[in-house]
Design a protein around this nucleic acid. Structure first.
Length: 529
RNA sequence: GGGUUCGUAGCUCAGCCAGGUAGAGUACCGGACUUUUAAUCCGGCUGUCCGGGGUCCGAAUCCCCGCGAACCCGCCA
């Protein structure tokens, strides 16, 4: 390489993005005293782990900006004024009567929050809190109630012709050539979307509408026929997404917002609206792929398969989520709980690199790995390394020891020489890996059919195990018992594994039986006689 | 019709976004654990990095053109 590669910040894509953002802000001569970044939080459905991505990554950009010496702030904007469009899978059908209403005005079907919308956004915020993400929470409901967007709404409505034409041209959506880009809440039936705005009275800042109904997906939503007038400065109503982002960016002075590819078109239109209608340079963007559920596993409708942050944290640490979201932004496709072991181990590898335990050949890669480690620790990495045990090994051990798990697994780990002593970190890891083993490696109950001679062998073994004296060479005894009765040792061992572990195979049986307690095993065996 | 992502070992995939010896898990083969089975540990094997062009001293990685797969948009938010 002819010229030395310039490392930006900590060498990650986050630094590069923040750097480009700063270059852009400087080139358009905008004030950089405080750089605000925004993240949208959906409030219409149960938040998937991907929903955290938007906020977590925006927070990463905030950290990078601060690392460059700028002041920055993350606004987490909850879209809780959006109307409920369809009932998400797994939620009660009784929500049907609320379709079209803002999610903040729908009762919480789980009964624990003030509204449906608050329930959903609380789940998301809870996830962010557990990851250590700091943000300023802004609700869509309050935004409109307090008229925070009133100037922007006014500008948009007075330019609605121009905007409608542009939307049709840019993305092929015709409807705003007729309807005004504003959804009032029908004062009679309480629904959004069903009421169409047809005239704006700029002097009064009021809008005339008629509740005529609409179609959402393939379904028709009947209007109630009500005709009314809404005050855009204080009545509830909202801008459609095609123009709302721009209004928000302008009102809150947002300089960065990431977006998923599903709303690419909306962002494109909003950039134009921001620049041309509101005269506000659009924020820097980065587009990310959506997280999908693992292809084949979508079939299982079990609730445990929904990849929420709450469920993830049953098996993995918060850092494993941060690693997933920070390691890269492009090309992420399918995500599932089975990614957790690899992420857990990968985090540990990064920690080893950071603390110099592992040396990489490539210097740039070392810098970037350390940088990634720092971001996963939200730029405040620990002073010293934490104890760690390979996650897969832990899962294996937890599969074997289901009772008294923590002490028994710890004992094994010490025997293996993996760790010297127990510690809270190791116990936490055993708990997580144990949950993983319990939930994803469920033992399947096998029907065991045994011939008489096997029965006799089993009862001999049972009495040997329940004797007061500890057998000397248990492994050999088992082998002999089988052999003496003309049973293939292989088959006998297999039956024993099925009885004890509900598995075809297992650890070396002699020492294992002693580990879990020979009397307990004797009891188990006699249950099958 | 428009757009995005993906294609790497038998299988599942990482590596690509800031170019520098092609990797992991699994499977398979062998060894250790003085008797079979598992785990664990050690060793071994596995490649048209989808095809073609370009840039470069150097390309799995960047650019262009194809082929194949998935997804998003073309209702709405």
């Amino acid at each position: 390489m002819e010229e030395e590669q310039q490392i930006i910040g900590k060498g990650t894509w986050i630094d590069k993005l923040a750097f480009e953002l700063l270059e852009r802000e400087k080139s358009i001569g905008r004030d950089t005293k405080l750089i605000r970044v925004e993240s949208g939080l959906g409030a219409s459905g149960i938040p998937h782990i991907g929903s955290l991505g938007d906020a977590v990554r925006a927070y990463g950009v905030k950290l990078a900006l601060e690392n460059f010496g700028y002041k920055s702030e993350l606004i987490a904007y909850s879209d809780d004024l959006d109307g409920l469009r369809k009932i998400p899978e797994g939620l009660p059908d009784s929500l049907k009567e609320h379709i079209g209403k803002p999610v903040s005005f729908i009762p919480d079907p789980f009964g624990c929050h003030d509204s449906y919308g608050l329930h959903m956004s609380s789940l998301l915020l809870d996830g962010l809190d557990k990851l250590g993400i700091k943000y300023k929470f802004q609700r869509g409901v309050d935004t409109y109630k307090n008229g925070l967007l009133k100037e922007q709404i006014h500008m948009i409505l007075t330019n609605s012709k121009k905007i409608g034409k542009k939307i049709a041209e840019m993305v092929g959506q015709e409807k705003y050539q007729e309807a005004l880009p504003y959804f009032p809440l029908c004062a009679n039936c309480g629904r959004l979307y069903t009421a169409i705005s047809y005239e704006y009275l700029p002097d009064e800042r009021k809008i005339k509408y008629k509740c005529v109904g609409t179609t959402i997906g393939s379904k028709t939503l009947e209007g109630c026929g009500h005709e009314g007038i809404a005050d855009i400065t204080k009545d509830i109503g909202k801008l459609p997404w095609k123009v709302e982002f721009a209004a928000r960016w302008h009102a809150f002075d947002i300089r960065f917002e990431a977006y998923g590819k599903d709303i690419m078109d909306s962002v494109k239109v909003n950039d134009w609206v921001a620049e041309e209608i509101l005269k506000f340079p659009a924020p820097t963007h980065v587009k990310y792929e959506m997280f999908l559920d693992k292809g084949g596993k979508k079939i299982s409708k079990s609730l445990g398969n929904v990849v929420t942050s709450q469920a993830w944290l049953r098996y993995g640490t918060p850092k494993s989520i941060l690693l997933l979201l920070y390691k890269r932004i492009t090309g992420t496709r399918e995500v599932g709980f089975d990614d957790i072991p690899a992420l857990m181990d990968e985090y540990n590898e990064l920690e080893n690199i950071y603390f110099g335990k592992i040396k990489l050949e490539n210097e740039n890669k070392t810098i970037r790995s350390k940088g990634l480690y720092e971001y996963v620790n939200l730029l405040t990495p620990p002073k010293s390394q934490r104890p760690y045990v390979n996650y897969r090994l832990l899962v294996q051990l937890c599969k074997i020891f289901r009772e008294d798990r923590i002490p028994l697994v710890t004992k094994k780990l010490i025997e293996y020489g993996t760790i010297k002593e127990s510690s809270p970190e190791i116990e936490e890891l055993i708990t997580l890996a144990g949950n993983y083993a319990d939930d994803f490696d469920k033992p399947t109950k096998v029907e065991i059919q045994v011939e008489d001679k096997v029965k006799n062998a089993l009862s001999e073994l049972a009495s040997l195990l329940s004797s007061e004296q500890e057998p000397e060479d248990l492994q050999n005894s088992i082998y002999q018992i089988a052999k003496n009765r003309d049973i293939q040792p292989k088959d006998f061992f297999k039956i024993l594994y099925q009885i004890i572990l509900a598995a075809e195979r297992g650890p070396k049986l002699g020492p294992f039986i002693l580990d879990i307690g020979r009397k307990k095993v004797a009891l188990l065996i006699s249950e099958h006689l």
